[in-house]
């Protein structure tokens, strides 16, 4: 641990932050889907609710698509840069920022 660099190179840094985004996204999605129904059940039960739900759903799919593309590229970039193997770092905590 001691000989690990404190700061990551740009590619690794970008990938880590995108990984953070991938973690936050499901939480945000769950909140975005659940909260409106607690808040205004009647307004979200019919036509407007259907439009809002399916609209959000489509945007979410698009967001995941874009995020995954970015993550794949970032992983490839880190691999090229000779950084740590992207598989391990995702789960073994963040030693460097």
């Amino acid at each position: 641990m001691s000989d690990r660099p404190l700061f990551l190179e740009r590619a690794s840094f970008r990938r880590r932050r995108l990984g953070d985004a991938a973690r936050v996204l499901p939480v945000l999605a769950a909140l975005a889907v659940m909260l409106p129904v607690w808040w205004l059940p009647a307004a979200f039960s019919f036509g407007a609710g259907a439009i809002a739900l399916f609209g959000f759903w489509a945007v979410l799919i698009l967001a995941v698509w874009v995020l995954h593309r970015a993550l794949i590229r970032a992983e490839a970039a880190t691999m090229r840069a000779g950084g740590e193997s992207p598989g391990d770092s995702d789960w073994t905590g963040h030693d460097a920022l």
């Binding site: 991938a22 973690r23 999605a29 769950a30 019919f46 739900l53 995954h68 993550l71 995702d90 789960w91």
Partner: peptide, 28 residues
Amino acid sequence: SGLEFATIYIGPTIVFTGAWWGLRRLVR
């Protein structure tokens, strides 16, 4: 029950939104 049917599909959607850090790890 109207829109409530969508819950059955939204749950998996949220799970798969987290595929990158959650499901990948499960599969690995």
